[in-house]
Amino acid sequence: MSDRFFYDADREKKNAARAKALQALLIEKGVITSKTVDTVLGYFETKMGPFNGAKAVAKAWVDPAYRERLVADTPAAIAELDFPEGMAGAEGEHMKAVANGDGVHNLIICTLCSCYPWPVLGLPPYWYKDPTFRSRAAREPRAVLKEFGLDVPADVEIKVWDSSAQIRWFVVPERPEGTEGMSEEQLAALVTPESMMGVAVAKAA
């Protein structure tokens, strides 16, 4: 994607120096503190992240009634689980889950920016933020998914959800075959952010 434009040879060095300079000035001026950036990043390592979404999906896999509740009233179903506070916090005020299966595959996109359900998925990976993905997934999702290595059969309907207002969407992928007898914890380890956004499916290790 980078061969169309000329970039400065020092591009990343300069970006890094500029970002650090901005942070330093904001600390000096009293806008933020020297711990602010680490506080924010630490929050996404421990409180808000795909580890939460994976737990909810694993629970839905072992408990069909929970799966129904997760889709019907996502915030209430999330609140049932033992999560940190803030599961209806920033970028999770209005979350909604859609479930794969019964001939349907769901794909979440944001054609205007990069809206993403922070409490259950953390921060968006680069593929989700890429303008090429955001453009093409709206018109040719099968071709796009193929580039991610996912073949969605022609007889499976793809539902593409464009996150253009308050809802932050995520996908409950299907439980992979060959996982009978696995614990919820083992199952959660199979759930990737990509499978909860619909560019991948969950696989048995």
Binding site: A16, Y126, V144, E147
Partner: peptide, 27 residues
Amino acid sequence: LGGLEGLGPVWTETRVFVEEWEKGIFG
């Protein structure tokens, strides 16, 4: 952006940050 043609392949990068400095501006 939705539906634009001729853009070439998507970028399948799964990392949130690809350069260390990006964490600072996000924070």
